[in-house]
Every structure is written in structure tokens, then in C-alpha cells.
Computed example of a mutant assay.
Amino acid sequence: MQDPSLLTTAEIAAYLRVKERTIYEMVNRQTIPFTRVTGKLLFPRRLIDAWVEAQTEHPAGGPAAPPPIYAGSNDPLLEWALRESGSGLAVLASGSGEGLAALAEGQAVLAGCHLLDPESGEYNLPAVRARLSGGIVVIHWARREQGLLVAPGNPLGITDLSDVAARGLRLARRTAGSGSERLLDVLLTRAGLTPMAVQPAARRVATHADLATMVATGEADCGLGLKAVAGPLGFLPLIADECFDLVLRRRDYFEAPVQALLRFARGPDMAARAARLGGYDLTDLGAVRWNG
């Protein structure tokens, strides 16, 4: 019988010769490739093998090639393009900060981020300079529109974040370390509020789609999210030109996965998809923002 392509927690623990508890700790720290199917943890064997190879130390040479993984911020247009382009990159959307960490540790080829520096007002470059060094390239992906997602027709009459705080409305929150959480903190500060001023919903979510679902099902009254996932929900714009970038090592820019993605992204299907989703400006897609 062939080895299964997806391993359970017990199977991956045996495969790596560690305790199951260690696997759960690695999942919590986002340091091992994994997926969730109906709430169950599964581990793609192909990605695990590539990840193990990337951890191998080479006494006489440089580090091994990173596993074929996109890590970082959740973006529905980018994740669609990664699939449709035939890039071969698996998606591990775990937040902007975790994406940069995965890239730094050789656990991903490509990282996506939209980290707003509250002091300079600049996106991504301050974080990249602080966390990565040597042979790093930052490629622009898109400008995105973010705002408050509210129930269809906005029956609560929500106006802005100050209104949400004053009325004690439940605000859906993204996972800690995500670019959207940092953006929320900046927007609250601009409104003269602290993060404690707003009442969070019962749980945090990893993706914009999950956040939209919380609002749609009444689990939250509103949440900061992309216009692209609003669908039938109401949308109150807050940021019209959020900068989303791709970060990678210079050596990987010319490799087939990244070139396949960028080639597809410049085509008509990409433009049509962005127009259907809404809230995207692809004017400078592919431009090099930093080469350090």
C-alpha cells in the first residue's frame, strides 16, 4: 500500500519520531505545514518532506531550498492566483508577521504582508528591514480597500469605529500578528481609542472570509475586512489604498513558481477577477518596492 498523502497527528508524530504534544505545539506556533479539514488537523506528506529537507544543515554549502509554500497574510485574489497560475505553491495563510517569520526561517518561498508602520505611515518595508536581511526583494501585489463589514442594509446604523466602541457592539477580530489587527490598532488610535475600547466577538478568525461569515451569521455585529469579501454585507470604507506586498529571497524571484504567478497576474483573467471581487487596484502589480 502506498503511503497516505495526508497524515494524521498521530501519524506525523510517528513519522518525525516526536510526541504528539510536540506536534500540537508546532501547529500552535505555525512552524510546521498543516491544514484543517472539518476541524481535523492533517499534514500533507509532500510538504512535510520538503519542510524536513529545508531544516537539514549543510556543513559545506548554503541552506537547502525552502519548501514550496506561500505563507503570510490572507488575500482572496492572491490565493486564487496561486492556484490558477499553476505556481505549485501551497498556501499557509497565518498572518503577515508569521509569514515574514516563515520566510526568515526557510519555511516558505513567498510571504505576503500588509503591515502598516504607525510611526512612518509606510507599509511593509520597515517590518521587512527589521526582520530580514540579505538578498530580500519586496514586490508590490495590490492596493486594497478595507473597511467595516456590517449586516446587509446596516440595520444597526453603524457609522464608524467610535460608534462601535460607544455602543459596545461586538467587533470580529483577526488573529494576533495579522496585518489587519495592526491596521485596526492604528485606526483605533487615530480615533482616540485603545484596543480595549471595543468589545471583541467570542473568537478570533484567520481569514477575511471567516470574518465576513461571523458578521453574516450574527456572531459579530461588525468587523474590519476587505471589500472583496463583503458580498451581500454592508461595507463602510475606512482605508482605500492599503498596500499589500510579496516578500521573497532574490534567488527565488527567478524560479518557476514565482515567475508563473507573476506571469499569470499580468494577464486578463487576473484583471477580470479583481474587478469582480472589487476593492483592488492592480496598477503597480509586479513593481519592485525594495531590493536589499
Score class of each variant (00 low, 15 high):
A50N: 01
Q146W: 07
M214L: 15
L184T: 01
F264G: 06
L238F: 00
L82C: 01
A256L: 04
V247H: 10
D252R: 10
E122K: 12
S73D: 09
A212F: 06
R129E: 03
T9Y: 03
W290Q: 04
R167S: 05
V258N: 02
R203K: 03
V137Y: 05
K227N: 08
A176E: 09
L156H: 04
S96L: 09
I69E: 04
K227R: 14
P66K: 13
D75R: 01
L103M: 01
G39V: 15
A65G: 13
F34R: 13
L282A: 01
D252L: 13
A197L: 08
I139C: 11
A111E: 04
L77N: 02
R173H: 08
A101L: 14
K40Q: 15
R263N: 12
F254Q: 09
F244Y: 09
K227S: 09
P257Q: 03
D75F: 04
I239R: 04
A202N: 00
L187R: 01
A10N: 10
A212G: 13
A14M: 13
R144T: 10
A81C: 06
L116K: 03
L132H: 08
L184S: 00
L42M: 14
P152K: 15
Y15N: 05
K40P: 11
V247R: 08
T9I: 10
V91D: 03
A228R: 04
D252I: 11
L125R: 05
F34M: 13
P155T: 12
Q199G: 02
L211R: 09
L187E: 01
R266C: 03
R143F: 11
F43T: 07
M214H: 10
A54D: 08
R17F: 09
L16P: 00
E84H: 13
D117W: 05
A166Y: 14
P200H: 03
M26I: 07
G147N: 02
L125H: 03
H140L: 13
R251I: 12
T175F: 09
Q2P: 10
R204L: 10
L116N: 03
A274I: 00
P155A: 09
I69G: 04
L161W: 00
P195R: 04
G225K: 13
T31R: 03
A64D: 15
P4K: 02
R273N: 00
P152E: 15
D3G: 14
E98M: 15
N154K: 11
T38S: 14
L42D: 11
G279C: 01
R144V: 12
Y280F: 02
G157P: 08
D252A: 13
L156D: 05
L115F: 14
P237L: 00
L193A: 09
R21F: 11
L187M: 00
A102M: 10
T8Q: 00
A201C: 03
G72Q: 03
G168M: 01
N74A: 07
A130I: 06
M196F: 14
L115H: 14
L132D: 07
W290S: 04
P237M: 01
L7G: 00
E84R: 15
A151R: 08
P66V: 13
E181G: 05
A130S: 11
L187K: 03
L187Y: 00
A201E: 02
E145T: 02
G135S: 09
